[in-house]
Design a binder for these strands. Structure first.
Lengths: 215, 215
DNA sequence: CACATTAATACCGTCGGTCGGTATCATAAA
DNA sequence: TTTATGATACCGACCGACGGTATTAATGTG
């Protein structure tokens, strides 16, 4: 392939194609050669000019996914029109439904079944999502009086743990009925520590999502 | 190496050595050749006679670890001298301390940092540990009146999720102070749904474990 | 001895990664 | 405007190591 005047364009092509193939076949089952073949004309040397290893491609793919999520989480956290409690509800309500069409959801499901991506997601939950997006919202809620807790940091981690893993049908396979049961206990548990966050509407929404995904 | 009269002995040797190397270097970084070299005299043909792939060795290693855990969990669940509540406390108290010396703990920590093993552990939590060990104990507690909940299945999953992942310093890196915080919220949350399971002694125990591990 | 089982070894295709080289770019001195 | 220069983008043959197989040799059991 002819030399590109804008190399970051080539980098983007590689990352996009890698993401596509990682979703299709998983990280281990995608070879550098697969990426090359799919890119049509680009060579191995080109890839290794831009990335020093397959692992580095993986990191770039993760960064791309992370950046897309960040834009969305930023907009919730920095919304001036809502108090902390309302923002936390928005996060909960939109966890698997909001900006995502079915294709995106299917993609996330596929990618989370890859051990490397799952591990990355768990790590990111505690290093980025909880401290930078959930906890600030909870602290705002404490400040504006809409949330009462002595454990903002821990509560953020707890919510993200249960949301991202336990009640996430993309990770822990579940029937709609099982999802409903989990959400009901989740709701009860939050209510038990004085946080009335999950109502029947949210539970129904998660169940519906699980149904759509389950089929 | 000469033909072994008891081939299952050879299988055991292979699995033991594979486990040792997986702990040392991780699954991906351990080659079949590494296992051969370490076994001293045994050949590739021998390994591929007993196992049809590297993946199958991985499964055997997981089964071995699982079997060791099962023996321990069996003994708690089937203990005739305790009610459900007491058994649940035993499980909580001994999660990272009981039969394990430091070497074993270090080993588990190493292995859980391998994506393949982490994924296996999460899957097993919901497919084996929760339904076969935690839930029966909770149901016994409901029957004998020592535990009150309408969600035995969900509660089992919730406990194992938080215990295995969130408050597990082997997975989610944490300072002793952070562990204390997490355990306090965990205790509060269970108390909120009417289950007074985690006391200061357990919290102190987890913090101590985290301290030992952290250093 | 016969025969199945266990183990040894030479070999295969594919993998991630390297390397010497070429083509094309921006820059600026001639 | 041309041309020399150095950096960057890319090429593709090649490498050692990998997981896995096919064939053969050895050994225990009836």
């Amino acid at each position: 392939m002819a030399r590109n005047k804008y190399p970051e364009e080539t980098v983007r092509l590689i990352v996009d194609e890698a993401l596509k193939l990682f979703i299709e076949k998983g990280y281990d089952n995608t070879s550098i050669q697969d990426i090359i073949d799919e890119l049509g004309g680009l060579s191995k040397g080109a890839i290794y000019h831009h990335f020093k290893s397959k692992e580095e491609i993986f990191e770039a793919v993760c960064a791309k996914i992370g950046a897309e999520n960040s834009v969305y989480y930023d907009s919730i956290r920095d919304d001036k029109t809502k108090n902390g409690y309302e923002k936390l509800r928005v996060i909960l309500k939109s966890a698997y439904t909001n900006p995502n069409n079915d294709a995106v959801i299917a993609m996330i499901g596929k990618i989370l079944s890859d051990p490397k991506f799952l591990m990355n997601q768990i790590r990111e939950s505690y290093e980025l999502v909880a401290p930078s997006y959930i906890e600030p919202v909870i602290r705002q809620g404490i400040a504006d009086g809409s949330i009462k807790t002595d454990y903002p940091k821990e509560l953020a981690e707890l919510i993200i743990t249960l949301l991202n893993i336990w009640v996430n049908p993309l990770i822990v396979k579940a029937t709609p009925a099982e999802t409903t049961g989990r959400m009901k206990l989740f709701a009860l548990m939050l209510k038990g520590i004085g946080i009335d966050l999950i109502d029947d509407e949210i539970i129904r929404q998660y169940t519906l999502f699980c149904e759509r995904w389950h089929a």
